[in-house]
């Protein structure tokens, strides 16, 4: 028998304690879907109250609308009206404008960020343009491009272009000095540094730019269609407003909001995918 009692009792307690701390907690249905349930609940409750007021006739259809009226209008427009063609029209304008803005923004951003001289040449000009509210230029753009689709495409282009450009420039500039030095120590050429350090390092910045570009480009396409033309979701909203068809107006607004949520979520997903290497925040 040893004089000292072995410290077994403590050791015996440990595994239990570890289990509690380190094994993933077993979570119920509610816990797993908590944010969805709570967030959806709020929306649902609000809709219910809104509908109750609408059904009770407390809301004038001249100034506002109700969920059931909007849903009915949506169904009608989708099956008999030109909702689908409007949606396609806006979608195509947005897609072309946004694609052009992304390509131009990334390419120019990379060049301006990398070459100091190019920045000196174009920096002040771009800052001036960036500071100008793009929406204020819409009438001018319509004078240039007419009321057809190309004026809309161009409006999307200039609204989405700047966030992509500015973020790309920032990303290329934010090159980590330690990485630069390491690359140099292994005899990297300028081109290799550009390819292996500057570009991959700026990917998260570029994606942030694209996400902001999506949001602004959506505003662009709607505003463009409101100012001139006879098609598209923006036109639908403007037309609904002019004719006091508040239900039509709401259908348009909700579609825009939904598109915004969807596209931003897609962009965020992309961002997260390409930032896997970043430490968890």
């Amino acid at each position: 028998m040893s004089a000292l009692p072995p410290p077994i009792d403590r050791v015996a307690v440990l595994p239990q304690a570890q289990d509690d701390v380190f094994s993933p907690p077993k979570r119920g249905f509610f816990k797993r879907n908590e944010s969805l349930i709570l967030g959806g609940g709020t929306v649902f409750l609000l809709l219910a109250i809104w509908q109750a007021f609408w059904s009770a006739g407390k809301i004038s259809p001249l100034f506002f609308s109700g969920p059931s009226a909007i849903a009915a209008r949506f169904w009608d427009a989708a099956t008999h009206g030109q909702l689908l063609s409007d949606l396609r029209y806006s979608g195509i304008n947005f897609a072309i404008g946004f694609a052009l803005a992304s390509v131009a923004g990334v390419i120019l951003g990379v060049i301006i960020g990398w070459y100091r001289r190019v920045d000196m040449l174009f920096g002040p000009l771009l800052t001036a343009l960036y500071a100008t509210p793009r929406v204020a230029m819409v009438p001018l753009i319509i004078i240039w491009f007419g009321i057809g689709m190309w004026s809309k495409v161009f409006i999307v282009f200039i609204t989405a272009f700047f966030p992509v450009l500015v973020n790309t420039i920032g990303g290329i500039r934010a090159v980590d000095n330690d990485l630069l030095r390491a690359a140099r120590a292994y005899c990297a050429s300028d081109w290799q540094i550009f390819k292996t350090v500057a570009v991959p390092g700026s990917v998260p910045f570029i994606l942030t730019g694209l996400r902001q570009g999506v949001a602004l480009g959506l505003i662009g396409v709607v505003v463009g269609e409101m100012f001139g033309g006879s098609q598209g979701i923006g036109f639908m909203v403007a037309y609904g407003g002019q004719t006091f068809a508040t239900d039509t107006l709401f259908v348009g607004v909700l579609i825009i909001a939904f598109a915004g949520i969807l596209l931003t979520a897609a962009a965020e997903k992309l961002e997260r995918h390409f930032s896997r290497w970043r430490p968890e925040r």
């Binding site: 990485l179 030095r181 120590a185 292994y186 005899c187 350090v197 390092g201 290497w277």
Partner: peptide, 19 residues
């Protein structure tokens, strides 16, 4: 200038975080 006959281990690991 730098050369393939030398290699450096820096104090900060200076690894490419995306690789």
């Amino acid at each position: 200038g730098p050369g393939a006959d030398r290699a450096v281990v820096f104090q900060h690991s200076s690894l490419l975080p995306w690789r």
